[in-house]
């Protein structure tokens, strides 16, 4: 079992004829993901690595039965692409695009929450269910099948932690990157219940960072979970008022400090190691 995606997932790539879209379509296909369609307006009838291209997401969904969309279109067009995916009725839209204006995402996220579609991202690396399906840009060679659910705000730090788990023989059910934007489609509190409900997930690793209060909100939910959670917070030493790369990674107005997050998580029994290298051991202890 896994969350959100598995080997039966049928994926449509929005922006498939672009440089990024094309590159990652090949990577996803190589991993074994069923990429069944691509969308680029005006290019229907073409194929990319054997994947048929359609003019609209609605056409692609109608013709191929795709249920997951992954979006590789520039920031200017990405909000519209998210809405188009929701209109076509996919279960999950994964927006990889970085640099979308915040107010655009305020509109998009609030709208999509009222539809049947779940939005992951924007500015996220996507997700991967080892040996079954990868949607987005996470490297496939760092994961292995196993009992740990991973949910994270950052990309490369997640690769770092997941590859360490894998090296130490601890596999994963699904790794979900929710992204570093201030208004994400999925927050920790949206993803944690999926792992709680997944019978194969025995332990969850939650990788947070400074900025916002998503980790604090998650702590409240974790106190009701039956499964153990290990936390990690990146940016403990970052100064207030400085945006650390991600638009969402900023301590401002006394909010979003690492200390507040560590305290909130510790208060509900979640260990938050100082160094990421301690994570595999903490997971192993809880796997028993």
């Amino acid at each position: 079992m896994s969350v959100l995606i598995d080997k039966s997932s049928r994926v449509v790539v929005q922006g498939i004829t672009g440089r990024e879209g094309g590159f990652h379509t090949r990577q996803m296909l190589a991993y074994g993901t069923q990429v069944v369609a691509g969308v680029t307006p005006g290019k229907s009838g073409q194929t990319v690595d054997g994947v048929p291209v359609f003019d609209t997401v609605a056409d692609a969904v109608r013709s191929t039965g795709a249920t997951i969309s992954v979006i590789f279109v520039p920031p200017k067009f990405a909000p519209d692409a998210c809405l188009e995916a929701a209109d076509a009725g996919v279960d999950l839209a994964v927006c990889i695009t970085e640099g979308i204006p915040i107010n655009d995402m305020v509109s998009v996220v609030n709208y999509i929450r009222k539809t049947k579609t779940r939005l992951l991202g924007a500015n996220c690396p996507g997700l991967i269910t080892p040996e079954e399906c990868k949607v987005g840009i996470m490297p496939g060679n760092i994961v292995m099948k196993g009992p740990v659910g991973v949910v994270a705000r950052s990309g490369t730090l997640t690769y770092e932690i997941v590859s360490r788990l894998t090296r130490e023989g601890i596999g994963q059910t699904t790794c979900v990157g929710i992204g570093g934007d201030p208004v994400p489609g999925q927050r920790f509190i949206d993803v944690l219940p999926l792992f709680e409900a997944d019978p194969d997930t025995k332990v969850v690793v939650m990788i947070g960072e400074i900025g916002g209060t998503d980790e604090e909100d998650a702590a409240e939910y974790i106190s009701t979970m039956t499964k153990p959670v290990i936390g990690f917070i990146s940016g403990r030493t970052a100064p207030p008022g400085k945006r650390m790369g991600h638009a969402g990674a900023i301590v401002s107005g006394g909010k979003g400090t690492a200390q507040a997050k560590v305290e909130a998580l510790s208060a509900v029994g979640v260990p938050v190691p100082v160094s990421s290298r301690e994570i595999p051991e903490l997971v192993r202890e809880r796997l028993g």
Partner: peptide, 26 residues
Amino acid sequence: GNGAGLVMGTLDEVKDAGGTPANFLD
């Protein structure tokens, strides 16, 4: 480093090792 989270994590590790970060650069 590459990636904001990884660079932030690296700053934290340098601080833990007794150093002081001069900058964040992703």
